[in-house]
Design a protein around this nucleic acid. Structure first.
Length: 809
RNA sequence: GCCGAUGUGGCGGAAUUGGCAGACGCACCAGACUCAAAAUCUGGCGGUGGUGACAUCGUACCGGUUCGACUCCGGUCAUCGGCACCA
């Protein structure tokens, strides 16, 4: 006799069963499917319902793929280096690994509640020396290829905490922790030459099945532009200044030039009269943080006293310094065309510099210009030989023309900068470099990796801008691998992004002591077919991972150059602000974090899984509402009761049921394929209502129930297995193949269509699906005859199988 | 400022991509069962008018295309996200 749905009993039973008989096993014949979750930072707060959402989505997809006959790679691991564990260590004096270990245990416990098919044999942890050995190995390879280099450069510096800060740690120009004003400090940094891959990172976006939004963010970040470098001679000096411009068509309109204060010639251009002001400006700029520089919208600048000569017309133009010109983009110098550039216009207005229009908008020169005309559309004027040309054409042709004239060259530029790769922190991978007074920076030999992160007494930054590692003499002092003389270890550590830039490779061979990944395994299991995670990593992590993969491809470690074939970004689950009721990110400080633990206990894993999907379209943000889960719980209860009744007492397989079954498979499959997971759940509910009705009127046949159980299994796996067993089927439901549908079997012979007058529905008619147009229209008119009375029929429309519309007055 | 997304009942959201707007669910209301409550089941549930089968308005706003528009086009507003002096 059927018992009521008891989620605890059913879920407990199948959890044990899966443990004893794993369902995802490789048989050497099945093709692989690699479905990856972005691995989490194991924070002390544990998982909340927002994390669950992404993991449920990926598990549903994984189980679906499994039922389609794939061997699954569906691993999980820990991105465990990072500041929270370090700060915890500073406050409590315990090693960060202690907090990590505890948090990982809690995460694992919570993840087991999801019932996702994670293969824990593949587990990785970025803080494990066996793992970061290879993070360091990649760095050594990059160093040897010239892609990792040292550079003295200004970074954000907090004078109170006496430490360097990452950009993310600077909020409104102030230190996130102590709120003092952040300045700049020159520090030696390790850099990765990601710019060497700019073009490939940009053009290969085309071959990715990723959300357009993410591709656009990456392409904007890389920021390729086309233009020309133009050489201007400095009047009366044996120097020339090269500027970069994307608008060489406006070259005749250049009325001044501006250099970044950091430009190599900046001080040299000063005359006796201007020297004091110029030096002061350069000094002041150096004291300003990047943040201040970006926030000061009001333009500042100083005239150097020197002039540059426009190569096209020989005109002398004054050279200024201004911090709105960036030193590290293009050549650090620009030609200024105030008539056709907003910033130059503003600068010219402020310092009373001449404005010459060279593009006539609609063929007419603008009188009393109040803002720059920035579009490259119009006829060239005041431009010598170029007069009369179309700006849009000239813009494209000018770079080559200028190059031909010998005044410069055609070129492209990228906004992408090299990656500042060193951190003055403890809890990260030591950079495997040894500094020798004679040999310079030398890589630690590969056979000596990993360079272990040593224990320290204090985790705090030292105050000199060095990491706490610098205080351990016994660790720092070593010998040069090249010449054997005394040398010192690099004490900077890597950023958190290092370990996460390649972890997806390690999963397929996570315990290999000799190689980053075995070549055969890489060929067999990689790349990742589906990558699921939040959109917050759209640029940084995903760009770094692509860069690493391309590099590892270049040195022959892997055979592919893009790591993630398909990407899906799930929306964030928001909580409500307790006072305003507005949707906000779930956070500890707002006290609106919803933990899944109680929900699993009260409603069960299957209910929570369904609710996570039902809450809204998976790609959009949604607001968590505890009450809604009652609805899916009621559905599962009704579904279970309905299924059990029909298993015990099946109905006959009627034509109606065959039709319904085929439609069910069609609806669920197409919705699942298009990732419309919220409508999959509502679809199950809708069909279930029909089946509940049918159960009271003759019952549902066994084949239909069986199909239903297979379909629901990826979503509610415990329920799926339980009913599968009740059906008397052997083995796991996940080894049964995904049901298929027959489109012909779905169609009705008689269909109901609306009849409209002037586009407004006035009634419906039942017609044969292949009925002739005239018959349908006649029948339609008959059905609404009373409403057509007194009207003149102008036109009669029948869209086969869809609608009848009578146009009448 | 630039780029992108979104805007549908009290709420979360559907709409086969131009064809019956509001599926499915939450909340709410009424009824059944119960001594009673919970659970469960049945029915109702966009606004306005009418006792009523019905009429009429309605998908942020204004306009357009179409026999027909939540859907397409032009413009406006609001909310959210990304970039932000990249020459």
């Amino acid at each position: 006799m059927a018992t009521a749905y008891n989620h605890k009993l059913i879920e407990g039973k199948w959890r044990k069963n899966w443990e004893a008989n794993p369902i995802n096993v490789e048989d050497g014949k099945k093709p692989k499917y690699y479905c990856l979750d972005m691995f989490p930072y194991p924070s002390g707060n544990g998982l909340h319902v927002g994390h669950w959402r992404g993991y449920v989505i990926s598990d549903v997809w994984s189980r679906y793929k499994m039922m389609q006959g794939y061997y699954l790679i569906h691993p999980m691991g820990w991105d465990a280096f990072g500041l929270p564990a370090e700060n915890y260590a500073i406050q409590n004096g315990v090693h960060p690994s202690v907090a990590v270990e505890r948090n990982v245990a809690n995460f694992k416990r919570q993840m087991n509640e999801i019932a996702a098919i994670y293969d824990w044999d593949r587990e990785v942890n970025t803080t494990d020396p066996d793992y970061y050995k290879w993070t360091q190995w990649i760095f050594v390879k990059m160093f040897k290829e010239g892609l990792a280099y040292e550079k003295e450069m200004p970074i954000n510096w907090c004078p109170s905490c006496k430490t360097g800060l990452a950009n993310e740690e600077v909020v409104d120009g102030k230190c996130e922790r102590c709120h003092s004003e952040v300045t700049k400090k020159n520090l030696r940094q390790w850099m990765l030459k990601i710019t060497a891959y700019a073009e490939r990172l940009l053009s290969d976006l085309d071959k990715l099945d990723w959300p357009e939004k993410v591709k656009k963010m990456q392409s904007d970040w890389i920021g390729k532009s086309y233009g020309a470098e133009v050489d201007f001679k400095v009047d009366g000096m044996d120097e020339s200044i090269t500027v970069y411009t994307t608008r060489p068509d406006t070259l005749w309109g250049a009325t001044f030039m501006v250099l970044a204060p950091e430009h190599a010639l900046a001080a040299k251009l000063a005359t006796d009269e201007t020297r004091e002001a110029v030096e002061k400006y350069i000094f002041d700029s150096s004291m300003k943080s990047n943040v201040d520089r970006m926030q000061d919208k009001e333009k500042t600048g100083v005239f150097t006293g020197s002039y540059a000569i426009n190569p096209l017309n020989g005109k002398k133009t004054p050279i200024w310094l201004a911090d709105y010109v960036l030193a590290d983009y293009g050549t650090g110098a620009i030609m200024c065309v105030p008539a056709h550039d907003d910033r130059d216009f503003e600068f010219a207005k402020k310092f009373d510099l001449p404005i010459i229009q060279v593009i006539a908008k609609d063929g007419v020169e603008i009188e009393n210009m109040e803002e720059a005309y920035t579009e490259a559309v119009g006829t060239m004027i005041n431009s010598g030989d170029w007069n009369g040309m179309e700006s849009s054409v000239l813009k494209v042709e000018a770079p080559a023309m200028i190059e031909k004239m010998g005044y410069g060259k055609k070129t492209t530029n990228y906004k992408l900068r090299d990656w500042v790769f060193s951190r003055q922190r403890y809890w990260g991978e030591p950079i495997p470099i040894i500094h020798c007074p004679d040999c310079g920076a030398v890589a630690v030999p590969e056979e000596q990796l990993p360079v272990l992160l040593p224990d320290v007494e204090k985790y705090e930054p030292t105050g000199t801008g060095e990491s706490p590692l610098a205080a351990i003499d016994s660790w720092v002092n070593t010998t040069c691998p090249c010449c054997g003389k005394p040398a010192k270890r690099e004490t900077n550590t890597m950023p958190q992004w290092a370990g996460s830039s390649w972890y997806f490779l390690r999963y397929v061979d996570s315990k290999n002591p000799d190689e980053l990944v075995n070549k055969d395994k890489a060929d067999k299991y990689l790349p990742v077919d589906m990558y699921i995670g939040g959109v917050e990593h759209a640029v940084l992590h995903l760009l770094y991972a692509r860069f690493y993969t391309k590099f590892l491809n270049d040195i022959g470690v892997v055979d592919f150059d893009e790591p993630f074939t398909k990407l899906f970004n799930q929306g964030m689950v928001c909580g409500r602000d307790k006072e305003t009721g507005a949707a906000t990110k779930m956070s500890k400080s707002l006290g609106n974090i919803v933990s899944p633990d109680d929900m699993v206990n009260d409603y069960g894993c299957d209910s929570l899984r369904l609710y996570e999907l039902f809450i809204g379209p998976p790609e959009l943000d949604s607001i968590w509402d505890d009450r809604g889960i009652d609805g899916v719980y009621r559905f599962l209860t009704r579904f279970y009761t309905m299924a059990v009744k029909n298993i015990e007492n099946p109905g006959a397989e009627t034509p109606e049921l065959i039709k319904l079954r085929n439609r069910l498979v069609y609806d669920i499959t197409t919705r699942l394929e298009s990732f419309s997971l919220n409508t999959v759940v509502s679809g199950f509910m809708e069909y279930n209502n029909k089946f509940v009705d049918l159960t009271k009127n003759g019952g549902v046949d066994r084949e239909t129930i069986k199909t239903l159980v297979q379909l629901i299994a990826p979503f509610a796996p415990h329920m799926g297995e339980e009913l599968w067993e009740m059906l008397g089927e052997t083995g796991s439901v996940f080894h049964a193949s995904w049901p298929i549908f027959d489109k012909a079997a779905m169609e009705d012979d008689v269909i109901t269509i609306p009849v409209q007058i002037n586009g407004k529905t006035k009634g419906t008619i039942d017609i044969a699906k292949d009925a002739a147009k005239d018959d349908v229209i006649a029948k339609g008119k008959e059905a609404i005859a009373d409403k057509l009375e007194g009207l003149n029929i102008i036109k009669e429309i029948y869209v086969p199988g869809k609608i009848v519309n009578i146009v009448a007055k």
